[in-house]
Design a protein around this nucleic acid. Structure first.
Lengths: 136, 136
DNA sequence: TTAAAATCTACTAAAACTATAGGGTAAAAG
DNA sequence: CTTTTACCCTATAGTTTTAGTAGATTTTAA
């Protein structure tokens, strides 16, 4: 299941991308427009800022804004920050690899074999989509 | 993340498929061979039986066995039973569809648009794999 | 220089889900 | 009738998710 964190994060990014100018947009405005709990969204936007997707400005007239052009923002990186590994199991993860402690030989493992394909197909989708592609 | 339930279920199915004859295999044997908690595996095999993948036999010489040929068992149906919906979000699910209550228009939703592609790509993988394809 | 408007930070907590263990019941075989 | 096995129900520790609360900090504008 996709977490609400990721869902809301994607919606917020898309909303910011759809605002043509790059003026800061307040959390409250995003939350209202996308039907998101404002406090929850606050923490999500914070992690997006810390990971280099957003800039912020405090005080009156402040808010969040995109730091790159929408077509430069790949879904692979967005998903990794919001949802974590793209692989469904660590033993097939590119960026978060971990060996299964119960599995003696990955090459012979059925789960490994299947999940490798799933990872590759998901990766292809995320690599073919930038934030610009999601704007309605 | 793939649940251990699914992981163990897949391993158990593969193990049963690799046993050439269709003699019942005891839970304990599967659990030992695949390094799985026996009690947990017990409940997993039960749901696999209830969903038409396995047959069982009680008493001495009993155990679980495949009810169909490995090449007839599609990963789509296995995954749906073990892991649940293949879609990451209900609004793009074929078999478990549900509307998002926070989303006014699916057609304009960025999350919907992205997750539809992810679902399709995952589906293609699962449809192209039967249990027979996972046997080492 | 004060007040208002925002983000930032840390802490807490309810709810849901996951993985597992325990103990007893039912059926099949010998 | 005893052993062996699957079957079934319950509880529970642990983790993750999804927030909510309270306040600190920074910026702008009056």
């Amino acid at each position: 299941m996709l977490s609400k964190k990721t869902k809301y994060g994607l919606k917020a990014l898309t909303y910011l991308a759809s605002v043509n100018n790059r003026e800061p947009v307040q959390i409250a405005e995003i939350a209202k427009h996308e039907n998101i709990s404002q406090k929850f969204l606050e923490s999500i936007l914070l992690t997006l800022r810390r990971n280099g997707f957003l800039g912020s400005k405090k005080g009156k007239g402040g808010g969040y804004y995109l730091i790159k052009e929408p077509h430069e923002i790949l879904m692979t990186s967005v998903m990794r920050v919001l949802e974590g590994p793209i692989a469904m199991i660590p033993c097939v993860s590119l960026n978060f690899y971990e060996k299964c402690d119960d599995c003696p030989d990955e090459k012979k493992c059925a789960v490994h074999k299947l999940m490798l394909q799933v990872r590759d197909s998901a990766l292809e989708v995320y690599r073919n989509n930038t934030l610009a592609d999601l704007i309605p």
